[in-house]
Write a protein that binds this DNA or RNA. Structure first.
Lengths: 106, 106
DNA sequence: TTGACGTATCGTAATATTCCGATATATTGA
DNA sequence: TCAATATATCGGAATATTACGATACGTCAA
């Protein structure tokens, strides 16, 4: 061992779920979705317009994010509103923006 | 717009680099590597043993992490020690561990 | 009920990632 | 120099992800 410190507990297997969810997060469109939804709720069409992709593609991205429990949705008439369902996302997004969007901070 | 709040600045394109780096991070072995290296420096062989993968596979993972500037390396004789090179990694890893390893916190 | 609109699902071709073995390079000691 | 050890690189098969089109579903207004 290179240091006198003890190895942290855990193993590769403990990170399987984390890796799955990070992989879902690791897409430019999905990061933008999270950034928007941390500020309020949006419909599929609104998000698709912002990201400049077709509605059905947006629907696919939202489904992936829902599968990781990052988002949930509420139907209101013809529209479906998506919103953040995972409290850790705010902190995680702050880290990501702090590292990768340093010039665009408010 | 669904709320009176203003949309956050930026766009999908601003997240391209972030998505690239998160994709690199989104692997069980690589998350474990980061966790270990946040505690001290390790050689390729030590990391490979901990993660139970061949040395050359570990070398590949380390190269990917280096490409994102997450890590750097120092040769000492026959050994190469890897260490964390990105100050944001600690905070990011805290988020990830807080969300996905809640039972294993120290 | 019909048509329009918003959203969701599914198949698939193109592309990217992962894993593995073979081989190459660097360093040390005999 | 040679063999042994530690690390790095590369090619390719297996697998996963992505983007896209076609189509289906749910809701509303006329």
């Amino acid at each position: 061992m290179s240091k006198s410190s003890v190895k942290p507990p855990g193993s590769v297997d403990n990170f399987s779920e984390a890796a799955e969810c990070l992989k879902t997060l690791a897409h430019p469109v999905r990061l933008r979705i999270i950034q928007l939804l941390l500020q309020g709720r949006y419909t599929v069409g609104e998000l698709a317009a912002d990201c400049d992709i077709p509605d059905n593609a947006m629907s696919d991205h939202l489904r992936l994010l829902q599968r990781c429990s990052f988002l949930n949705s509420v139907r209101d008439g013809r529209f479906v509103y998506y919103q953040v369902a995972e409290s850790h996302l705010k902190q995680l997004m702050d880290c990501i923006e702090g590292r990768f969007l340093p010039c665009c901070r408010t």
